[in-house]
């Protein structure tokens, strides 16, 4: 490395981030902050859910069914945001070849899938008393079903390829192309059927949508679920790093035996 390169790297203000890309450093850093994230998650998620479940009044049009919002909205938000996070991680892997980034995308997929399923089921159960049907081919519901299919395909591709680097490359390309088509599907579905679902309940003009009594515990629940995602993501990425190391050691063993 030349002198200019070194100074350039030293000046890179994203260095704090790229520290995480080194697997050894990642393991020690994530090990250190994991208990803190876990604790914060417990401190926000549990009160948020308990507040939402026990201490919120009935809403005018929804009755007590409004309580479903505390599990429906956070899971739905995570389902989409986790896909975005996987897209970013895939891009980082493709551009900068940081293994931890690819493994983080892999680790996030199952969390995203679970959240999508949870959002779909809670939405269906909520839809039955509200709209009189469990399922309607409403744009938002349909988009989530499509998102579910994308998660399935992504995870299936990871599972089908043996070589870890090949798998990381191909799934990243799929994630990229898939994101474009997922976005296209979103608009296509909108065009195809204007639906029953109310607009986003958390837009900036919250007064119009949800009053404070429901909004405050909801924010707490969303923060809690997000921290839960971070906790699980760190745990699962650590697992993937360990698996990768085991895989490397075993390959080396086999080479030595041969």
């Amino acid at each position: 490395m030349t002198e200019t390169h070194r100074t350039k790297q030293a000046e890179d203000r994203w260095n704090w981030l790229w520290e995480w890309a080194n697997p050894v450093k990642f393991m020690s850093l994530s090990g250190k902050i994991l208990p803190w994230v876990m604790g914060l998650c417990a401190l926000t998620l549990l009160p948020g859910l308990i507040w939402g479940f026990f201490f919120t009044p009935e809403a005018v049009n929804f009755g007590s069914s409004v309580k479903i919002i505390y599990v429906h909205v956070p899971t739905a938000m995570l389902a989409i945001n986790i896909w975005v996070m996987m897209l970013v991680a895939s891009l980082i892997w493709l551009v900068r070849r940081h293994h931890v980034s690819a493994l983080a995308a892999k680790a996030a997929a199952l969390i995203g899938l679970t959240m999508t399923v949870a959002a779909l089921f809670t939405g269906a159960i909520w839809g039955e008393p509200m709209w009189g049907t469990y399922w309607a081919w409403d744009p938002r519901l349909t988009s989530f079903l499509i998102l579910f299919l994308f998660y399935l395909g992504y995870m299936a591709l990871w599972g089908a390829i043996d070589d870890p680097d090949t798998a990381a490359d191909l799934t990243s390309v799929l994630c990229l192309v898939g994101s474009v088509f997922a976005l296209l599907s979103r608009y296509a579905v909108n065009f195809w059927n204007q639906g029953l679902h109310q607009g986003a309940s958390l837009s900036l003009d919250k007064q119009e949508n949800v009053s404070d009594v429901y909004w405050q515990p909801l924010v707490l629940a969303i923060v809690g679920f997000s921290l839960l995602f971070v906790t699980l993501l760190l745990l699962r990425t650590r697992t993937e790093v360990r698996r990768r190391r085991t895989h490397a050691l075993e390959t080396r063993e086999r080479m030595a035996d041969a």
Binding site: G63, S64, S65, K67, H72, T75, T122, P129
Partner: peptide, 16 residues
């Protein structure tokens, strides 16, 4: 929870 008890319990149970 009134008439929505089943829906609320079911969705919370499934999500959690």
């Amino acid at each position: 929870l009134g008439k929505y008890a089943v829906a609320v319990y079911a969705s919370w149970a499934i999500a959690l």
